[in-house]
């Protein structure tokens, strides 16, 4: 464990807590994409399949349970909670996210480090996580009025993978043979997808005006 990875995990945890806080306290999920939340639930479900077979540390297992629990409970809130589900703007959240799942699955079947069931699903979760934010970014472009909590959620979510890239650089420099192109490229693509959001987020923060994404 290094400081970059810890910072990444804490940023990721913060993003999830910000979203849960928003949904649980104000009982609203306006501006949040259910499609992205469903993709993230699939990402965690396919990435943490080894939670029962391999144990690394209390921290590792605890964080996996938190990420699994929070992503599925967010999906539950947005789909079934009587108050929250009414605030979900399903007309705007129309990204066909299943069109992201299939290519990622095919890609994982083609490009992976080991052709085993767990490894292919783990690689699938990497590819899917890289694009999971797309429905949310599309929704933000459409709704344009981004409330602070949703903006912070996306910002933190984008930042965590950026810290992970620093973590991979650190591990490459300190651990011999630590080379994982698949993870690195997927992580880089994921962070780049946030690039324009980051740009407008900093602009709005610097000029102290409301975050507006260009149509």
């Amino acid at each position: 464990m290094n400081i970059f990875r810890l910072a990444g995990d804490m940023t990721h945890l913060a993003s999830v807590l910000v979203l849960l806080l928003k949904i649980h306290t104000i009982k609203s999920c306006a501006g949040v994409s259910l499609k992205t939340q469903e993709l993230y639930a699939i990402v965690f479900a396919t990435r943490y399949l080894d939670i029962f077979t391999s144990f690394y540390s209390i921290y590792n297992t605890l964080m996996k349970l938190i990420f699994l629990g929070s992503s599925f409970s967010i999906v539950w809130y947005m789909r079934y909670h009587k108050t929250v589900r009414r605030t979900y703007d399903r007309e705007q959240d129309t990204f066909r996210h299943w069109f992201l799942v299939l290519p990622c699955l095919l890609l994982a079947l083609l490009i992976h480090e080991k052709f085993t069931f767990l490894e292919v699903l783990w690689t699938f979760s990497l590819y899917l996580e890289a694009v999971a934010i797309l429905p949310q970014l599309v929704l933000l472009q459409r709704t344009r009025n981004i409330d602070n909590l949703t903006g912070q959620y996306v910002f933190l979510l984008g930042g965590y993978r950026g810290f992970y890239i620093l973590n991979w650089i650190y591990r490459y420099l300190t651990e011999p043979h630590f080379v994982h192109w698949i993870t690195w490229i997927a992580g880089l693509v994921q962070t780049l997808l946030y690039a324009d959001f980051f740009y407008y987020y900093f602009q709005s923060w610097k000029n102290n005006k409301k975050l507006q994404l260009p149509a």
Binding site: R5, H12, D50, S54, S57, N167, F178
Partner: peptide, 10 residues
């Protein structure tokens, strides 16, 4: 076992 080294990440 090197591959496992990545699996301890979240």
């Amino acid at each position: 076992c090197l591959q496992e080294s990545l699996k301890d990440e979240l």
